[in-house]
Design a protein around this nucleic acid. Structure first.
Lengths: 222, 222
DNA sequence: AAGATGAATTAGTTATGCCTAATTTTCGTT
DNA sequence: AACGAAAATTAGGCATAACTAATTCATCTT
């Protein structure tokens, strides 16, 4: 199958469809419009084009889905993005909340060679600094530990943060300051109406429910 | 003065005007069209826009010049490009003839932060792997040693290559294979009609005049 | 079963940045 | 001083990817 050259826009559409599909059963035009920060008619238009290119399938008024080829491209972009995030953090001293924005621009521009070079340098990592899995060179998604949202953990215990499910800069910056980042061990204290009370590194915080839903943790049992 | 956000195209125009200005007294629309690989009417159109933005000055049917602001931007792009070239070569194992192409795309996309990070890592270098000076953070052009083209050196002696004045991938690849790269010591043997005969690293080559004009050397005397 | 509502689509516009074809300007020659 | 060639410009178009406004469709409520 020929590999068509896509615009950055088109790559972003495919990437977002993929990411939304991981969460929702079906991907609506509205969801895409929100994520891509464009108006719905723009989405309809672009989806039509991607459809013509056989990168997505679209039943009007229903939803969108990636074709095999479309998914391949989405995974490539995702691999670029996540490798870059780790690279920026590890080798260029970027802080945890700064990496997303820079990777977002670089992901469309780096060559296969660049990808391979940083993958090598990073020793072919499986997860990025936010805990997101990095697709392999063969574009398989590596396994992640079993996780559930902090907001859904009932048993009070010591657990490890595995993944933070947001790209919002302000939230990331906050979580970074509180050390609520993947790899961090935290202690669940109490589930209050307003949020989850946790101990991190000796300090206690009340994590609001909205934010607790974004923090996924490895739960050793139940 | 406000820093306007420019398109990649616009940055490329400013960069090329600057580079042409270093060589020619005056920059023609044709020169630009050739370098940027577009047709002359496109150049006229874009120059008009850059003129309106006060980034260039243009007397129709005469030539183009950068304004102060335009030159600043050109130097920023050039700094990005040349830092990136050195970075790719030093840290990501790119070969000498591969760096230009990748830097060409990345230069428009990296942030100030990225620039600062690699400049730090490279210990604030003054010249890139092709011997081109890297503008400083303050956008001053660092001094280079006195040089003249290999084709213009009369006295037969041992000299050091300082700069290679081409971005042509094929020529770069050839020169790379022959080790005719900045820093290399070479011995002038004879000036023949067809070219300059030199000894490099024990091997003898005949460097055609066209190529000898691209290789600038530090000449200790005369 | 008929609206009402919200999602999706169509129609038509805009801004970039390129193109070709036609025209104008400049300048070196005679 | 006039001509011809080369360079530059204008005029008019095309593709991309956004947008707004208007319309159509699907579904939920009563």
């Amino acid at each position: 199958m020929e590999k068509p050259r896509l615009s950055e826009s088109q790559e972003d559409y495919l990437k977002e469809i993929f990411k939304l599909r991981e969460v929702n059963e079906t991907v609506s035009m509205q969801d895409l419009a929100r994520k891509l920060d464009v108006r719905p008619p723009s989405v309809t238009g672009m989806i039509k084009k991607l459809c013509a290119m056989k990168l997505v399938e679209h039943e009007p008024y229903k939803g969108v889905q990636l074709t095999e080829t479309g998914e391949k491209i989405a995974l490539e972009v995702l691999r670029h993005h996540r490798l870059l995030e780790l690279y920026l953090a590890r080798h260029l001293n970027y802080s945890w909340d700064e990496i997303h924005e820079e990777a977002e621009r670089l992901e469309h521009v780096i060559s296969e060679k660049f990808e391979a070079a940083i993958a090598d340098l990073l020793d072919h990592p499986t997860h990025d600094p936010h805990g997101d899995p990095i697709p392999t060179v063969e574009l398989e998604i590596p396994d992640s530990p079993d996780m559930k949202p902090l907001s859904a953990i009932k048993v009070y215990q010591t657990i490890i943060i595995g993944r933070v499910m947001t790209q919002d800069k302000d939230i990331l910056s906050l979580l970074s300051r509180l050390e609520l980042i993947p790899g961090q061990q935290i202690e669940l204290i109490r589930n209050e109406a307003a949020g989850i009370r946790v101990r991190v590194d000796g300090s206690q915080y009340l994590v609001p429910q909205t934010i607790a839903r974004l923090i996924w943790c490895e739960s050793p049992d139940t």
